[in-house]
Amino acid sequence: MQLTYVFSELGNGLRRNVSMTIAVIVTIFVSLTLVGMGLLLNAQATKAEQYWGSKLQITVFLCNENSTTANCVNGEATDDQKATIEKTLDSNNEVASWRLQSKQEAYDKWREAYVADDDTESRVYESIRPSDMQESYWVQLKDPEKFLGIKSAVQGLPGVNTVRDLREVLKPIYFWMNVMKWGAIGIAAFLVVAAILQVGNTIRLAAFARRREIGIMRLVGASSLYIQLPFLMESLVAALIGVGLASGALLVFMGVVIYGTLRPTSNIVAWVDWGDGLWAVGLIALLGLALTLIPTLVMTRKYLKV
């Protein structure tokens, strides 16, 4: 296979269809950026639920040495008190499941979310140890509207410091996060369809412009792959540029908005990190290649027949 011909045809094709190629690149860029934003919002919602709990959960915090409530007069919750709490959870019809979060797990979550802005906060941050945290039971409810029974059953038990119910606070937060996530993915889906159609139109115009050369190559016995390769290369170039722009936009968003604004100023939740950003970039890269190369293979089989 003569690669000189392939690259020559690639350059000719890009020059002939420069406006269509730019349109494909822009559509891929916008659609993949929105898909990436949807993936980041989904990762953020997952982190928020891991940190605060979902609208189907309540959290039962146990006493530690620093607790001052009436149920904590004897200090740290004992094993017998924990056994009583667990028996109450097991026997309540409102409870679907529960798990015990250790002090170390609570400490790790807190350190992931907390950011110290000055020397005073840094000293406080470094002074806190896992032993200062509270163990807690994360209780999954069968019905988010039926929680008063289990709440009243456990909040008066010895060893229970507080019962946290953030369902009404978290409900609008999760609602709008889901709206933004699915809105971004929904708009991206329409743009992905537009990108596929534009790829098809680009291939159709390119095949029409080269119909004489294609006919000659068929007559001399050139293989389908040899004829298709320049078209695939054109689509690959458009995909790589579009993926590169979308990836750059996501990484700029991570650096400026997440790491530059939200993480240093807000400790209310663990924010998405570079690992989540790179995961989103990897997925949109695969999607970008798929939505250009697959339509190109399908369309060339149709339009390159002579």
Score class of each variant (00 low, 15 high):
9 E>T: 09
10 L>K: 04
12 N>S: 15
13 G>A: 06
14 L>Y: 01
16 R>G: 14
17 N>C: 02
17 N>L: 10
27 T>C: 12
29 F>A: 12
32 L>S: 06
32 L>P: 00
35 V>L: 02
39 L>F: 03
47 K>E: 13
53 G>Y: 10
61 F>I: 08
61 F>N: 13
62 L>P: 02
68 T>R: 14
72 C>L: 02
75 G>K: 09
77 A>T: 15
83 A>H: 11
83 A>F: 13
85 I>H: 10
89 L>T: 12
91 S>G: 11
93 N>S: 15
94 E>H: 13
96 A>Y: 09
98 W>H: 14
100 L>I: 09
103 K>I: 01
105 E>A: 15
114 Y>L: 01
115 V>C: 06
126 E>R: 13
131 S>N: 13
134 Q>T: 07
140 Q>E: 14
145 E>Y: 09
148 L>W: 06
148 L>V: 07
153 A>M: 11
155 Q>G: 06
164 R>M: 07
164 R>K: 12
165 D>I: 05
166 L>R: 14
170 L>A: 13
171 K>M: 06
174 Y>I: 01
179 V>D: 06
180 M>P: 05
182 W>C: 05
185 I>K: 02
185 I>A: 04
197 L>W: 10
197 L>A: 09
201 N>Q: 05
205 L>N: 06
214 I>K: 10
215 G>M: 11
218 R>T: 13
219 L>S: 11
224 S>P: 00
228 Q>A: 08
235 S>I: 04
241 I>Q: 04
242 G>P: 02
247 S>L: 04
251 L>I: 15
254 M>V: 00
255 G>Q: 15
255 G>P: 08
261 T>I: 15
262 L>V: 13
263 R>D: 08
265 T>N: 15
285 A>I: 01
287 L>T: 03
289 L>R: 01
296 T>A: 09
299 M>V: 07
